[in-house]
Amino acid sequence: MSEKIGFIGLGNLGLPVATNLIDAGYTLQVYNRTASKAEPLVAKGAQQVTQPADAVTTGGIVVTLLWDGAALENIVTSSGFLEQLGPNGIHISMGTVLPETARKLAAIHEQHGSTYVEAPIFGRPEAAATKKLWIPYTGSQQAKERVQPLLKAMGGQGIFDFGEEVGAATIVKLVGNFLIVSAGYSMREALSMAEKNGVDPQAIVDMLTQTLFPAPIYQSYGRMIAEKSEPFGESEIPLKDVDLLKKTAQQAESPTPISNFLHDLLSTDLN
């Protein structure tokens, strides 16, 4: 591939996604706050840079996969980032943030002649490594056509277009994560009750995921719970994402009784 891609954010999900790009033949310029996390990519030929703006090519494409909206804003407003990206440049944001944050950043990019495309990821790190991610995306049609091959190369087994109104793909991500957390906690409670009553939880998972609930989340999380493996572990991601859904719903004056309850459960589990 002739185009050089910038990639910022090499956490548990960012690293396998960036690795997929290199394996697909793309040349990467990578930045991560903890520099040592870039070593596997450097070994594969990536160029490591010391400042976010140095990962950006004028008129090119830069990908960010960051923890939250604050980290994303810090990168976008860091010295030289938008100036270096410039006219015709595209920023693909793949983290989970508030829709209002996405819209705010899209407007800032537009002021600099560049384009913001939101493309949050559904999938755990192991799904990224096996290229089984689901990616909703939103942005200008021209930008989406340009980045679609990259999204597929990153591991997107399915790319879903939610139009040009930035914020829509982020809402899809918040809804999906909320339903995933809801399903996980419901399965944990139900399978615990079954086991305490002498019924094999794995047998229940096997039956229900072949009949009433033949969905990847019920299959994978149900198996983990039946095997006494906690799907969420000590991760702060579920709490963060449920909190984002609550804030987004409250701004739209949409009721949140279940997400309020989930938020309390998640807060308790982390304490």
Rank of each mutant, 00 (worst) to 15 (best):
M207I: 12
P201V: 02
D206R: 08
Q157K: 05
G176L: 04
L150F: 00
G155S: 02
Q202R: 11
Q141A: 11
G184A: 11
G176W: 01
F178C: 13
Q202L: 12
G156K: 00
D200N: 15
K152D: 11
R146H: 11
A183M: 14
Q210S: 13
T130P: 00
E195F: 11
D206V: 02
T138L: 05
A128D: 00
A168D: 08
I171R: 11
S192D: 13
P149K: 11
A127S: 04
A143C: 10
Y137K: 02
L174A: 05
S186G: 12
I180N: 07
N197L: 10
T170E: 14
A169T: 00
L179W: 13
V181P: 04
I204D: 08
A153C: 08
P201L: 06
R124T: 10
T170L: 14
M154W: 02
V147E: 10
P201R: 03
D200R: 12
G163C: 08
R124Y: 06
M207G: 14
R188T: 15
V205Y: 09
A190E: 06
L208T: 15
V199Y: 13
S186M: 10
P201W: 01
F178T: 15
V166H: 05
A127E: 01
V205H: 08
D161R: 03
P136F: 09
A153T: 08
A183Q: 13
V172F: 11
D161P: 00
F178N: 06
I135A: 01
T170W: 12
K196R: 14
M187H: 04
M154Y: 07
P125V: 05
E164M: 09
K152Y: 07
G184P: 01
E165K: 13
E164Q: 13
L179C: 13
L174V: 03
K173Q: 02
Y185W: 15
Q157D: 07
Q148W: 06
A194G: 07
I135E: 00
A169W: 01
I159R: 04
P201G: 04
A203Q: 15
Q202I: 00
Q202K: 10
F162A: 11
T170Y: 08
F178G: 12
F122Q: 05
L150R: 03
I204W: 07
G139W: 05
K196T: 15
K152H: 12
G163H: 03
M193A: 15
S182H: 02
A194K: 07
A168S: 12
M154A: 06
G156C: 00
K196A: 12
M193F: 15
G198H: 10
K144F: 04
V205F: 10
R146S: 09
V199C: 14
A143T: 02
